[in-house]
């Protein structure tokens, strides 16, 4: 089953954030809270699946020489869709993510997958690859956001429901924990992600 392999590829083995080191800007900038990471991840996943599908469909029509501008037009169209939908239905999230919503266009993951995968393979496989990469990006961002939020504020805004963590346990933590604010500030983003990639390297080496 090739599409299933393509799908699982992006989730772990070639995870964009922890393995390929692509799309660092949004990964560092929006992950001050788990819910922001989740929102950003899902928006990127949508763009990635749609652009991979369309580019794969058009791969025989697009001339080799101008493929990059053509890819960028397809990608930026879907980003505009996300931008308008988010503005209409999730204005709060749109406000928090701010400038990083239009900047999904220049997220290297999307162009890299268009170039390395969608331009070469069929529609089903490309869509599966886009979905896998997108969800891989999403879980990485959500995890990074959760770690930074818990250490930095001692709480977990709305996201605790997603992880099925009972709220009272977080309240107990807050009772005796003095938050290390640094992790939700700019330097903490770099340091936390650096340590997490290091930890991933350590864990996967022994496999």
């Amino acid at each position: 089953m090739r599409p299933i392999e393509d799908f699982s590829n992006g989730l772990f083995r070639e995870n964009p954030t922890f393995r390929l080191i692509l799309g660092m800007c949004p990964a560092l900038a929006v992950t001050t809270a788990a819910i922001n990471g989740l929102g950003m991840g899902l928006a990127t996943t949508f763009v990635l699946v749609c652009s991979n599908t369309i580019i794969s469909l058009l791969r025989k029509v697009i001339p080799e020489d101008i493929r990059i501008p053509a890819y960028i037009v397809v990608i930026s169209s879907f980003v505009t869709v996300v931008q308008l939908v988010m503005q209409g239905f999730a204005p709060e999230l749109y406000g928090i993510l701010g400038i990083f919503v239009p900047l999904i266009v220049v997220n290297c993951i999307i162009l890299a997958r268009a170039e390395a995968f969608a331009g070469k393979y069929g529609v089903v496989r490309s869509a599966a690859d886009g979905l896998g990469m997108g969800l891989g990006f999403t879980w990485a961002l959500t995890l990074l956001g959760a770690v930074r939020e818990v250490i930095g504020t001692g709480s977990l805004s709305n996201t605790y429901r997603l992880f099925l963590i009972p709220q009272f346990s977080l309240k107990i933590i807050r009772g005796f924990y003095d938050p290390a604010l640094i992790t939700i500030l700019a330097p903490g983003a770099f340091i936390t992600l650096g340590l997490m990639i290091g930890l991933m390297n350590l864990l996967t080496k022994h496999r």
């Binding site: 080191i21 500030l185 700019a186 330097p187 903490g188 983003a189 770099f190 340091i191 992600l193 650096g194 340590l195 990639i197 290091g198 930890l199 390297n201 350590l202 080496k205």
Partner: peptide, 23 residues
């Protein structure tokens, strides 16, 4: 540098310290 941190991870931590300095 510890093997697990070689390459990108140590670069990110360095960037974090630089960012702290720019604070």
């Amino acid at each position: 540098v510890p093997p697990a941190l070689r390459g990108v991870p140590i670069a990110l931590i360095t960037a974090g310290l630089l960012s702290l300095a720019f604070f």
